[in-house]
Design a binder for these strands. Structure first.
Length: 276
DNA sequence: AAGTATTCCTGGCCGC
DNA sequence: TGCGGCCAGGAATACT
């Protein structure tokens, strides 16, 4: 499932395919999922950014202004959902086709959890998670003191991380990995300063390593890059999808539980719930 | 207000 | 072989 490292890898890969190109036509068949995409037609991609798990394509007004239309800049949002990704060729799971003045790029999404929308830059009211997105884990904005303070009164730590509020881009895989590395039980509440500091460092470490490895490609192949290349971080997983395998710190078999409707993997010896 | 359940959606896998 | 049933899960929504 695409989380920050996979989305960032995708961003880097599609940048040379879309930057500076003009979107001539956007084709899809699910208006309720892919909203206002026609507004992007005739506009030029002048930037490809990312916030958390969202890709943000900045669209210049120039071409539209020439055509006598609304001249304000627009933003094309893409969320990859569970199985979304870009491809160079159309396939059975092509959901959105971005036709440009120099060829097409295809948004592929078998399970249709992904989203595409065109909005005014920064107007994210229809996307509450993006609107309330916490700091980027690999930026200076991810302050340790602030994180420690918020963690002191938070509920179960894993659902808290998945909310995208304390930090952006952490999903199921990297939440489990960060908690394993910081030796915290996924259901731990009200982290001490020492625990929260460990988690803060672990999130940065895991995210940086995963971005460097091009993300994780799971056995089911749900995530791969536009060229079919696989990420390499899955070989560094310590907890996620390692149910029953020995913990690499202590040898205890990794356990799987369900927490907040999410499959959750942890070491019952290294990651014990502390009574508070 | 925060926590929990439900919904979306489909490929892949399991067991019979 | 084929089929039904179940599972994966990010985010929005509807509840309690």
């Amino acid at each position: 499932m695409p989380e920050l490292p996979e989305v960032e890898t995708t961003r880097r890969k599609i940048e040379p395919l879309l930057l500076g190109r003009t979107l001539t036509r956007i084709e899809h068949d699910a208006p309720h999922k892919y909203t206002d995409t026609h507004k992007a037609e005739g506009r030029t991609v002048i930037g490809i950014g990312r916030r958390g798990k969202y890709l943000l394509l900045r669209l210049a007004a120039f071409e539209a202004a020439l055509a006598g239309e609304d001249p304000g800049d627009l933003e094309l949002l893409v969320h990859l959902g569970m199985t979304g990704g870009f491809r160079l060729e159309a396939g059975p799971h092509t959901r959105v086709t971005l036709h440009t003045d120099q060829g097409a790029v295809y948004f592929n999404d078998p399970r249709r959890f992904g989203k595409v929308a065109v909005v005014r830059p920064g107007e994210y009211a229809a996307f509450p998670t993006l609107d309330g997105m916490g700091p980027e884990p690999l930026s200076e904005d991810f302050g340790e003191a602030e994180f420690v303070k918020a963690a002191a009164s938070a509920g179960a730590v894993k659902p808290w991380l998945l909310s995208q509020k304390p930090v952006s881009g952490v999903g199921n895989i990297y939440a489990d990995e960060s908690l394993w590395l910081s030796r915290l039980h996924p259901a731990q509440k009200k982290l001490t300063a020492e625990e929260a500091s460990r988690l803060h460092a672990a999130i940065r470490e895991v995210m940086a390593a995963a971005v460097a490895a091009g993300g994780s490609t799971l056995g089911d192949g749900t995530y791969q890059q536009h060229d079919g290349e696989a990420g390499q971080f899955q070989v560094h997983h310590h907890a996620y999808a390692r149910t029953g395998e020995p913990c690499e710190r202590c040898g205890t078999p990794i356990e799987k539980i369900v927490l907040a409707q999410r499959g959750t993997h942890f070491c019952p010896h290294c990651q014990q719930l502390q009574p508070r």
